[in-house]
Design a protein around this nucleic acid. Sequence first.
DNA 1: AATGAATGAGCGTTCATTCAT
DNA 2: TATGAATGAACGCTCATTCAT
Lengths: 220, 220, 220, 220
Amino acid sequence: MRQLKIRHLQKKASSKKGQATVTAILNAARSLVIEEGYAGLSMRAIATRSGIKIGNLTYYYASKTELLADLVDAVIQSYVGWWDEVMADDTLSPEQQFVTILTFILEDLGAPETTGFFPELWALANHEKNASEAMGYLYQLEHDMLVEMIGRLNPSLGLEDRKILAVHILASIEGHTVFIGYRKKWTQYAKPVSNILIHSYLSLIRSLTHEEIHTLQNSV
Amino acid sequence: MRQLKIRHLQKKASSKKGQATVTAILNAARSLVIEEGYAGLSMRAIATRSGIKIGNLTYYYASKTELLADLVDAVIQSYVGWWDEVMADDTLSPEQQFVTILTFILEDLGAPETTGFFPELWALANHEKNASEAMGYLYQLEHDMLVEMIGRLNPSLGLEDRKILAVHILASIEGHTVFIGYRKKWTQYAKPVSNILIHSYLSLIRSLTHEEIHTLQNSV
Amino acid sequence: MRQLKIRHLQKKASSKKGQATVTAILNAARSLVIEEGYAGLSMRAIATRSGIKIGNLTYYYASKTELLADLVDAVIQSYVGWWDEVMADDTLSPEQQFVTILTFILEDLGAPETTGFFPELWALANHEKNASEAMGYLYQLEHDMLVEMIGRLNPSLGLEDRKILAVHILASIEGHTVFIGYRKKWTQYAKPVSNILIHSYLSLIRSLTHEEIHTLQNSV
Amino acid sequence: MRQLKIRHLQKKASSKKGQATVTAILNAARSLVIEEGYAGLSMRAIATRSGIKIGNLTYYYASKTELLADLVDAVIQSYVGWWDEVMADDTLSPEQQFVTILTFILEDLGAPETTGFFPELWALANHEKNASEAMGYLYQLEHDMLVEMIGRLNPSLGLEDRKILAVHILASIEGHTVFIGYRKKWTQYAKPVSNILIHSYLSLIRSLTHEEIHTLQNSV
DNA sequence: AATGAATGAGCGTTCATTCAT
DNA sequence: TATGAATGAACGCTCATTCAT
């Protein structure tokens, strides 16, 4: 299970016991969102699942908004930057790096946590500033990584075009969550779909031209 | 504005006035979900926005679950099958048909309604059976359409492979909602990203082979 | 017991049953303030004392603020304008009218309701706009009445001086609440103190001059 | 600013630091009551404003009731007995002493602290024994002083009558708090109203007879 | 077909208080 | 002396739902 990396987010929780409680709270909240959706995320439910009383919960988080902000931050953190290692591994070719990272992402996307969490985040981001910002932060990092990978694989492509292509790849990957994610309609096709996806991106990265990106296709 | 096509879903609403009320209710509910998210969808808010009293709302919908079921069905219906006309238009080549449909979809994805509604639906589908089914129904139709289009564009591809490819295309398209949809982070790139996407699908459809689909990519 | 005159304050409560409920609510709230103070005025306590459930209470009063506003208005109304009759009674001399009204006021001030309610209102008025306004409204009417009475008793006194004198009389009367009101320290002296008070006002009204009002006394 | 005179009220606070903390606590509580009313007086708010943690606050005051008792006592103390000096000053005539003291009182009554605190105290006294007692203590002293002053100004008046007259004067003065106090409706008239008041009391004291005090006025 | 009245459960939050450290 | 952690009760309020009219 993906571990929540609790940063120094909370003012409270100076002691070890407090830290443990905060971790329990955030883990409870995370699992609740995943299992029951944001609608099921009540302070009472979080407290119960954390094994504490609601009064103590509000000792650590004076408001649900604060808790949610910390939760989103903590979960987002657990998805961030893990690819640095792969990208720094020069025993791998850029292609190998890219394929490795994509394979990881696509496999993770089938995990219950990922399938459960992200759609909630996307929905939330439409109406909650916090969620929107955290999501923007995560995808910005992922986008940066993709821009860098595209540059390594096809240095001849201009920066702006790399950015555009990266948006497509990023969006395309994430979209699969709802279709081949955990217990989704086409989960059975997860593997071949992933193959197509990787094949498609590699070929796009290698061969896409500035003209193709900027020429309207609806005048075929 | 996308019109809600009210099927004969409710037992009540036999009269014309009743039909009008039901339409008002569902439109109110729909706009509420889009504007405030599922969390903001309360019976009270729906009644207020419909211009009726809550007592009357429960006359038409005895429970919120029922209402939600009808709402999801109605909204889904409004997205269904509009492509039949395009596909039946034999003055257009298969390529033209495909590009026309995709362009429509991608433009719609930038509409506030679409950007607002679908992430809520995806989140809901993780926990509500009806939402999951309705979503499955919609995407099944869209998937069928894509399988048919792929067949027209590349008849040499086997049915199973067409299905797999269609899943990728479907997932990829939908994923863009959260990235280039209404007021999203990369909305500015909507046009070139759409170009890449269409280009990519056409080239995949035309050139993808059975081997590429089923050969593991992580052994590059 | 002073009856609460419920004006058409509430949007809800169109039916007779609703009216009765609203009256019960306001009477419960009023007795609670009197018995336990504003601190004891909780929505739960009001509901219990009204014999209804809290859900129904919020049906009539969506917020405590609204309820408080109505309560203050209703109570204030029950204290307002009753003196008109006396002042219109021309079988009484102005002195008799004045004494009659003052006697009423001073007797009322010994009632548990009055002794209990007004100090709460004064305290509340320091921090709640509603209370402050309602209080201002009541005392404005009482002040107007006093100005009129002073004019009848001593027509030679200018309007501004009458107003000033009326403020003193008004303030002086109200101050007695806390000293000779219900179960107060000097309640035993209520009668002679009232005598002094009436005697004092009459003599002030009759003999006070513009110079005495506006000459500094601390240079005696 | 009126200084809180901390008597030896608490068992704790033997050290100098403890004394300072207690003073900080009571000052915080006092300013809170004045600014936000008794309703805004929470242990948390007091702790925050004192710059200490709530755990430490309960070290000094195990319960809110205790703290309130000390607070009321301390504030009351700060209003007590300051007139002794004036009354002992034999360079002043009794009239001058009386006018001096009254002027002081009336000016103080316009201070935010006084206008803010006393109405809360009066309300509290209706339901809290300690508040009632402390208030009784303060007003007893003030009453004693007035009885003494009346005696000096009109020795021919019997003790009981002096007491009765003193009650009227005391009540009358206090009543002005809510009308010409800090930011009250008739604050503009504070000066002339004060003049009338002093004038009125002096003339009452000098000329009031036993018969006038005890003859019913409503038989005019 | 529509409204008004009422309920019971649950929400996020505040709070006085206790206690180990 | 002082803090951090925790509890339990209550707060104002929202809500889905029921039902008589």
